[in-house]
């Protein structure tokens, strides 16, 4: 909650680092962290969703393979896809949040080419016309 507090516009790096440390310390850390982050990224409050995306990207850089394999599952990718789809949370999420979610998924197709589910999810978004160009 502190790391994604929408009333504070600056990133709270100390909190974000503590969050990453907790993710790394717990056996089920990546699973629980991604559930929490999905919920925050789906927030209709733009500031909260954008902070959560920053936390997610920091975890990707600092939490290693256990985190990568969990985020590359359809379980989490579907939660990101819901933010982009007008059938789910897309009507409440801002364009800024949606474009960052798209950027995140695209960057993972480049950084994790071996993760087939990420490629599948991105191809599906393109096929459905949600990601253009």
């Amino acid at each position: 909650d502190e790391a994604t507090d929408p009333s504070i516009s600056e990133e709270n790096w100390e909190c974000i680092q503590r969050f990453c440390a907790q993710v790394n310390a717990a056996a089920e850390g990546p699973l629980f962290a991604l559930r929490l982050l999905a919920h925050k990224i789906q927030s209709p409050q733009e500031g909260e969703a954008l902070h959560a995306l920053t936390v997610l990207e920091t975890c990707v850089n600092n939490c290693g393979e256990r985190f990568h394999s969990e985020m590359a599952k359809f379980r989490f990718l579907n939660e990101l896809i819901k933010v982009l789809s007008p059938k789910y949370y897309g009507i409440w999420s801002s364009e800024k949040v949606k474009s960052r979610v798209t950027e995140v998924i695209f960057s993972w197709t480049v950084w994790f080419p071996q993760e087939v589910k990420i490629q599948d999810a991105y191809q599906m978004l393109k096929k459905q016309g949600i990601v253009k160009g």
Binding site: L31, K73, F74, N78, K82, K117, A121, M124, I130
Partner: peptide, 15 residues
């Protein structure tokens, strides 16, 4: 202290 964790994944959402 062992906990059961279902590792099965969902399907890709159809949107």
């Amino acid at each position: 202290t062992a906990s059961f964790h279902d590792d099965s994944d969902e399907d890709l959402l159809n949107i």
